[in-house]
Amino acid sequence: PPQTPVRTAMNTIQQLQMILNTADDKPSNTLEAYFHNCTVNPTNGITNRVEYLGQRFRENFAQAVGEGWVEIGSQRYKLGVRLYYRVMESMLKSEEERLSVHNFSKLLNDATFHGSLLACAVEVVMTTYGTTWSITLTSDIQTETDLSFPWILRVFDIKAYEFYKVIESFIKAEPNLTREMIKHMERCEHRIMECIAWQTDSPLFDILRQQREQEDQPDQPEPTST
């Protein structure tokens, strides 16, 4: 029988809790082994970034919905970090199998990759628990604060074009995402493709420019990325 919106939301929360209740707040032994295999060990960069972005998240969350909700924001972020490590490990296992590579130094030292992956994980958590908050400013005025996508991009200072790159791999790496969550991520993709990636400060324009310059020089090797 078709589900009510409330039942659907409850299922999504239960599914996320099932995945994350036993997940690590810190990199697992498997993940640490991948870090150790890197030419440059990325551990400090990763943990420092998680700490820094956590501060930014809590500040922006409190600013958006009020200081009284800071603890809720902290819990959301903590769950996002667990999902981030879990998906990172799953992605690395897939890449290891696909490429027969064990040293992921370049990827794991890429700040943009980590920022985008963490933003994606936090977006999943935020969407699961709902992102519209009604706050009362005075007894007569009530306003809604929208923390839905692309709010997280502003908080983490991530370009939509870079965030877009992790979405499909994220979905492949976490098979326990509900249908509703996958549809939400797909809507994020469409919004990026149709609008946000074309905003003035997008890296997409530099890439298009570089592609055009390479096409104008026929002796240049064909770029590996398209």
Partner: peptide, 21 residues
């Protein structure tokens, strides 16, 4: 996954997307 459109080809993954291949 049935409703999601997977755009990456067989030989493509996160490493290629971040120029780490």
């Amino acid at each position: 996954f049935q409703d999601y459109h997977f755009g990456l080809d067989e030989g493509e993954g996160i490493s290629e997307l971040f120029d780490c291949d």
